[in-house]
């Protein structure tokens, strides 16, 4: 049983980033930096468990939504739909390309001489979450491939004589500890948001962590019931945010703020501005605001830009500090 999302102590920035990605999955994945045991995977799991079940074609191996069934490579025969939980796929460190992308179904190829496709983890994660612990230890080519699919929303397999195309839209959540090897800057740039998590350095919060985990271990059902109301509120907020997202305004002043911020901190490329814009809009929708204002931009600027700054190895200042400095200089 997953830990209730609202019962997670502290880690506000991570929770905010996850909620924003739930409101607008197009923002791109969330990269979580932090030590082990800081609740990264707990939060991701909790979020996917929190989301209400989604409608999908019954028995479809690709989790197809009813309206996209005609694109399904399996030619979903029936139009019968079923409620399935939002998938949460935990990608193992040693996963091979075959397992991730999908591959020729060996059994059918060898046994019956049929050329059939066996969907991989990407198909399973469609419309849900793909969580990769220690993404910095994953093979580079696999990370490339994942980010590519995450960006295009489609998995195209051209190998072993197969040509398969299926939708694969998921929120990629990567986690890793930069002390154990870093991610290539090109890869980092393709994550929408990034957050840094630390175990709370405050006794009060630590005690609260112990209390809540203890309560959950004693009686998971009762614990879940205690937090059901708070969780339901979050579900409602996400649903409202999703609905409001297309109507949230994006005034020119906010766009100008975003552009000047990117110039001030020296973020490479245009992804910075675009993510700032999308994340500010999603955050405004989440907060129930009519348009994305400077305060929304401020709240999400660190997580949208932190991983995009060109690093000067001889400069000791951390990215977060540089963004904070720029924010204070620009907006007071």
């Amino acid at each position: 049983m997953a830990f209730p999302f609202s019962a997670i102590v502290g880690q506000d920035e991570m929770k905010r980033a996850l909620l924003i990605s739930a409101v607008d999955p197009r923002i791109g994945g969330v990269m979580v930096f932090g030590d082990r045991g800081t609740g990264k995977s707990t939060a991701a799991r909790a979020l996917s468990a929190l989301l209400p079940p989604m409608l999908a074609i019954a028995g479809c191996r690709y989790n197809c939504a009813p309206e996209e069934a005609d694109r399904c490579p399996d030619q979903c025969g029936s139009r019968k739909t079923a409620k399935v939980p939002v998938p949460f796929v935990d990608l193992p460190l040693g996963a091979t390309e075959d397992r991730v992308l999908g591959a020729l179904d060996l059994e059918r190829a060898l046994g019956r001489g049929e050329k059939a496709f066996e969907p991989g983890l990407l198909a399973r994660a469609h419309r849900g979450y793909l969580y990769i612990d220690e993404i910095n230890l994953l093979e580079d080519h696999l990370v490339d491939l994942l980010l590519d699919v995450a960006a295009s929303g489609e998995n195209l397999v051209e190998r072993e004589g197969l040509s398969v195309r299926h939708p694969a839209r998921f929120v990629l959540i990567g986690s890793g500890n930069p002390e154990e090897g870093e991610l290539r800057p090109q890869l980092l740039d393709r994550f929408g948001l990034s957050v840094e998590v630390k175990t709370p350095q405050d006794i009060e919060q630590r005690i609260e962590i112990m209390r809540r985990c203890d309560a959950q271990e004693r009686d998971a059902a009762a614990f879940a019931a205690d937090w059901a109301d708070a969780d339901a509120k979050i579900v409602k907020r996400i649903a409202r945010g999703k609905k409001a997202l297309p109507t949230v305004g994006m005034p020119d002043s906010t766009l100008q703020d975003a552009a000047s911020l990117c110039i001030a901190v020296g973020a490479d490329g245009l992804r910075g501005e675009l993510t700032l814009m999308r994340a500010a809009r999603a955050y405004a929708a989440l907060e129930g605001a009519k348009s994305a204002e400077r305060k929304h931009l401020r709240a999400i600027a660190p997580m949208a830009l932190r991983h995009r700054l060109r690093r000067d190895v001889l400069d000791e200042t951390g990215s977060t500090a540089r963004i904070d400095r720029a924010l204070t200089e620009l907006f007071g």
Binding site: R36, G37, G39, T199, I209, M210, C213, D214
Partner: peptide, 10 residues
């Protein structure tokens, strides 16, 4: 730092 260690200790 790890919350896991804390919970184990508990």
């Amino acid at each position: 730092d790890s919350a896991r260690a804390l919970l184990f200790a508990q």
